[in-house]
Nucleic acid binder design. Sequence first.
DNA 1: GCAAGGTC
Length: 761
Amino acid sequence: MPQYQQGYYQQGPPQQGYYQQQPQVVYVQQPQQRRDDGCCDGCCKSCCQVLCCLCCLEMLCGDCCGPDGTGGPVVVVAEKNSIAKALFEHISAGVGERHVFNSEYQFVKNYKCQLNNTTLFNKYIENNGLYNVNIDLTITAVAGHVTSFDIENAKTTYKWSQEKSDHLKLLTEAPIENKFSANDNDKHLGEKIAKNIYNLCRDADHLIICTDCDREGEYIGWEVFMSANFGYNFKKTLDCSVLNKPIGGSTKFNRGNTWRMKFSHLERNHMIDAVRNPGKLNENIINAVRCRSEIDLRSGTSFTRLLTNYYRNVSNIVENDGNSKGSFVVSYGPCQFPTLGFVVDRYDRIQAFSAEMYWSIFIQLDIFSTKLKWDRNRLFDRYVVAQIYENLYQRESEYVRIENLDSKSVLKFKPYPLTTVDLQKDCSKYFKISAKRSLNAAEYLYQQSFISYPRTETNKFAANFDFKKILDQLQENGKFKFISRTKLQPGSSNFSIPRSGQRDDGAHPPIHPIISMSDDKFNSLTHDQKQVYEYIVRRFLASCSKDAVGEQTSLTVRWGVNKNDPISLKNGELFHVSFLKVTHKNWLEYMPFCHWGATSKKVQDEIEANKELLSRMRVGDFLKMKETGMTEGKTAPPKPLTETELITLMDKNGIGTDATIADHIEKIKTRKYVVKDNKECLVPTNLGISLVHGFQDIGLDDSITKPFFRGDFESYLVDICDGKAHREVITHQVIQRYVKYYRKTSDNLTKLGAAYSRSRS
DNA sequence: GCAAGGTC
């Protein structure tokens, strides 16, 4: 335990100006006995809850606590620059000197400062205690993955021009290399980032991994760890088997001084808490990502080459679909194909549809213009309907008897807390913003700290979630003043705790606003950003509001009974109608673009005009009819798939992630498997149809173009994460399945060609 | 020229 050092403490605040506009400072004249956690009881918010250090959280007041020495430098690495920056601003608020340096990669910066007397790292004492010390802190970032996998010797040994039997080796034996990431703007992106981390970490005692709290984030954390240890040699060092070897003496960073902080949004106190209470990298999760990457690469490359080489030789296909031969690729991907499958499945159902005629009967009463529907809805035999109609009319042409009339209170439940997929679907539905665009806007809002992490599957808030804090924050926002008027607050009559959905990704809360936004800031946003931010705020308010309440009036009448003939009472046909009047909009106030099938104003007025009459009516009374008639119609085919429906299907079937669903849809468009029709619906091309039908003929549709295989695979990955299965075993099993599929496809390629010819005829 | 997953 560090010893208390007499004489260190000074009078007054350590840094003038730092305590401005803060609550009354409480100084302790005499240092007191330290507690077990190293605090002297009486100074800092971080340890004692006394206000003198409220403003900084990290720095001790200088009155009673002092440093035990200087710790070695600490390096924090985030998944993206914006998070590094946000964290730096949180931690270094009020620190005298702060420096920002460029890294070699243009989108990553290094943020440096010195923290004096900090308690922030008090829990990092397992190996090398940092306890009330002065720390050189550097925060930097990666930009997503540092490396990616590819086939080694793809241009020499494993060429496109090989025999199809040789492409099988891509599945089974081709070595996989770990390359530094590159993009169009920078071919050396990954290398620069690894080098930056390595250089910063040379003198560091502790490495803190601050990547996103999900499966890929864990793997990126591993890439950071390897960069810190090996720098640019990382590429050669990393074959991922290193994971299974003990990391110890030979590497600078190991389990003892490498930390994983977990956070789910960028709010200050939450992030500070995450730094204070770090965990460790989870090797199981890293292995699961490694497994997915390898299988996606091997299956993707082998099948893409097999298909591309075959289709190029099918007569006319290149010309017919407007491709140039050089760029014509028929790619297979374990997410692309099921996505295409959904589109073709709908197309097939439309093709198989044949319309049928149906007939029905309606009546209209004197007192309102809404027509009453026949209880039998419709029949597909004109003669039968005509007979029934005729009988009714002959028996009674003027009156119907009331069989049921009641009025009851009904609810429309408020929406669940917001997930990414719901955000994408709703923005598409209500504001015509595509999935890709709404995600981009949400990402910006997140990086600006206005909303929580935008990629989440969770639709329930934590039990201790502080709704009041956020509602208070929003109330300051000029743009959403309506909140102030209605005073939606815990304890107020219109507040109720949000509903809890069934999904929880364990990493992120539902999407919600974090802080308020000034009018100026709001006005500076793009159209998409405004819509998405406003939607997120409104949805949050709606989820904190109460269910909507309506009054539903239902009326059922019988036509074909005679007022003066009691024996006829069981005869005739039933007709019904119901009206809805919304009495308490509640959450609907916040989401005015949501409609609850309320009866039209015109009909409500008619009912209002006949209110007195209606209130007197009882079962058994008779009402006068104004009009009756027989109608005919045709059953309609299903409509082509909309993007919103496709997102729903992909989400439900686990195809892609929140962040990639929109990308897969784009991919099957660029491959010309599908096109959009004039109503923005997705329809398959001949090429797309031939792939799905061809694999059906080969007998692999369940595994290739349907989502089941990907779903199975996902559950294997969960087993790896949970430590119930080994990466090597799962990889081998799945690859063996693909080998079988490959052989079968390879032997039956002509079935794809036949399906293509068929689709054109 | 091939995947899916990150991010810019």
